[in-house]
């Protein structure tokens, strides 16, 4: 069982569309893990059945028991986030401002404050249209993705892959360079970097690769919309060569991704298009790279 993680520092590069195409090409030989839970879009292309769902708890939230509260105000005084305003004569916790540090509960003289585990979303195990399995999640408003949720989604995917003897786990990785993306790539066998030739695309690629390098994971790169700016594409290729990152493929600027998405399909399922072959070849290259 090998774990392939697809990431791109910046949004809008086509990461999810490419990941979904790989998932379709892999068929029921792969388990899909969608760790891009801030903007989890992949389910729109995979027709999951949401067969199994569970609440996800992360972080804590202070709750004040008004019966025990003596209105002393100690909690509001120590709160650095301004999360305990007085509303209609009662101290109440503003859930969006509370960071769950627990300081208020520790200073409350009447033990009126408890920290509760915060239900921030749900995670699902679904059968998708390929017959394969996908593990995915949805977060509520104001909930941050975390290493915890990513680890949970990936772990679940791994257990399923081990139990059913699947060859690959394909992970749609988290954006950015913070804790969730660290958790996304930790334990991976291969990282696919998806980028686009824009000033910001190159900048973000370099930043996210720093992380991959730190974890010493083999990586390859797909340059999407490569012909939109040949100069920057050239710079990206130079960067790949310098860092010894495999150049998996360069895809042209092509609206087929969008056309296919509009009818709920990945490009590899969509009738006659130029991208189709390039994506199939990219998937084959990824498998070759990972297995040697």
């Amino acid at each position: 069982m090998k774990e392939i993680v697809v990431i791109s520092g910046k949004g809008g590069t086509g990461k999810t569309s490419i990941t979904a195409s790989f998932a379709v090409l892999g068929g029921n030989n792969v388990v899909v893990a969608d760790c891009d839970v801030d903007a989890a879009d992949m389910h729109l292309l995979m027709q999951p059945d949401f067969a199994q769902q569970e609440d996800f708890y992360s972080g804590e939230l202070a709750v004040i028991d008004q019966d025990k509260c003596t209105q002393c105000g100690d909690c509001a005084n120590v709160c650095r986030y301004g999360a305990i305003p007085i509303v209609d004569g009662e101290y109440i916790v503003d859930a969006l401002s509370c960071e769950g540090c627990g300081y208020c509960a520790r200073v409350c003289p009447t033990q009126a404050i408890t920290n509760i585990d915060l239900m921030v979303g749900k995670w699902y195990v679904s059968t998708i249209k390929t017959g394969g399995v996908m593990v995915h999640a949805k977060l509520g408003v104001g909930a941050d993705n975390s290493g915890k949720l990513v680890a949970k989604v990936k772990n679940e995917a791994k257990q399923i892959a081990a139990a059913t003897n699947n060859e690959y786990i394909i992970v749609d990785g988290s954006p950015g360079i913070g804790c969730p993306v660290v958790s996304s790539i930790s334990g991976a066998n291969f990282v696919v970097l998806v980028t686009e030739p824009s000033v910001s695309g190159l900048h973000d690629l370099k930043r996210v690769y720093e992380l991959v390098k730190k974890f010493k994971i083999k990586a390859g790169c797909i340059i999407n919309k490569a012909d939109i700016n040949n100069e920057v594409s050239g710079e990206i290729e130079k960067f790949l060569e310098k860092e010894n990152i495999a150049h998996i493929s360069s895809l042209p600027y092509d609206e087929t991704f969008t056309e296919a998405m509009t009818v709920g399909k990945t490009v590899v399922e969509y009738e006659k298009n130029k991208l189709n072959n390039s994506i199939v070849e990219s998937w084959e290259r990824v498998q070759l790279l990972i297995n040697n």
């Binding site: 969006l96 104001g142 941050d144 509009t262």
Partner: peptide, 29 residues
């Protein structure tokens, strides 16, 4: 981007918010 704490911090004092999207299934979602 997103719907997490940084977005809330950045928009909570706004008088008006413009949401940018694309006319695609991903965009709608």
């Amino acid at each position: 981007p997103g719907t997490s704490c940084p977005v809330i911090e950045a928009t909570k004092d706004a008088d008006f918010v413009m949401l940018v999207t694309e006319p695609t299934p991903f965009g709608l979602h």
